[in-house]
């Protein structure tokens, strides 16, 4: 027993980190997002479309358990009206209780409720989906990423590239294709170009025209009803669910950076003035003469 545990531990230790070497997973293409960069903001219409895609397609299997209905009308999100959210919440059945008789009962949802999960528990979810529970989507955009590699992981810091998760999700949703010759897809699996190992349990979820978008004045849908657009919209929505305070964060960040810049400028000159009392600041050491004394 002890030896076995040792061996397992040794295996975990010795072989950690070999994930990306095992399978050659293609790099997802980088998308243009309205929420990237230091002044990024969500596109409200896109979030609303993305929510529609989630609700009509993803929600049948995937939960959104950290998101409450009220969040949908909060600032910095899809910003549905409060009346819309109230009506939407009422369409859901929420389990509550126990009542006076000691029984659990169902009631219409309220804005304060969180999205109910499609399955009562993880085992039920797994049982209904070929043995693998569909993951909750609340944090998906932050819980997925892809390997950037040298030197990109350094340049990413300067260009503030933090949409790895979103880019991966778009690529994944568009990545369903025929398996190449010689690749056997196990039963219950589906070939996906961008999924690590290529075999994903989720069948292709989106198809063109599947979700009807709101029409503009000209009677045209406000965005193309294509898999590509659905994927982008639902990913934008999931980026918001994963990081609901993204806009507030970037806005406050700019103010803080500006303040700190001014303060450090003031401090710099104050410091110079103070040090002038002792004849100015002198730092370090003189370059020593490069000769040796005998």
């Amino acid at each position: 027993m002890m030896k076995r545990t040792l061996l397992i531990a040794a295996a975990v230790l010795g072989f950690s980190a070999s994930a990306y070497a095992a399978g050659e997973t293609p790099v997802p293409p980088q998308q243009k997002w309205t929420f990237q960069g230091p002044f990024g903001k969500f596109d409200r219409a896109q979030l609303q479309r993305g929510f529609k895609v989630y609700r009509e397609v993803c929600a049948s299997c995937h939960g959104l358990s950290y998101v409450a209905f009220r969040n949908l009308s909060a600032e910095g999100g899809p910003e549905f009206s409060e009346a819309q959210v109230k009506a939407l919440a009422a369409e859901y059945k929420i389990q509550d209780g126990p009542n006076e008789a000691g029984d659990m009962f169902e009631r219409p949802g309220r804005p304060a409720d969180r999205f109910p999960s499609p399955f009562p528990n993880e085992n039920a979810a797994a049982a209904a989906n070929g043995g693998k529970a569909p993951p909750d989507l609340s944090l998906m955009a932050k819980a997925r990423t892809y390997e950037r590699g040298f030197p990109w992981f350094i340049t990413d810091v300067f260009r503030q590239y933090s949409e790895n998760g979103a880019d991966y999700l778009v690529a994944l949703l568009n990545g369903y294709e025929e398996a190449p010759a010689g690749f056997t897809v196990p039963q219950g699996g589906h070939y996906n170009h961008y999924y690590p190992g290529h075999v994903i349990a989720m069948p292709k979820p989106l198809s063109d025209g599947q979700v009807e978008y709101a029409k503009n004045e000209a009677g045209q849908p406000q965005a193309p009803e294509t898999v590509e657009q659905y994927a982008k919209d639902v990913t934008a929505f999931l980026t918001w669910t994963a990081e609901p305070h993204l806009e507030a964060r970037k806005r406050l960040g700019f103010q803080v950076m500006l303040f700190l810049l001014v303060l450090s400028g003031l401090l710099y000159f104050t410091k110079k003035k103070v040090w002038a009392n002792v004849g100015g600041e002198v730092e370090g050491h003189a370059t020593p003469p490069m000769t040796h004394n005998p």
Binding site: L139, A143, D156, K250
Partner: peptide, 17 residues
């Protein structure tokens, strides 16, 4: 502040979500 406001998850791991 640059990390906190612009790259808050860069130094962590996606798996921890």
């Amino acid at each position: 502040a640059y990390w906190v406001f612009y790259m808050p998850n860069y130094l962590g791991h996606a798996d921890n979500y």
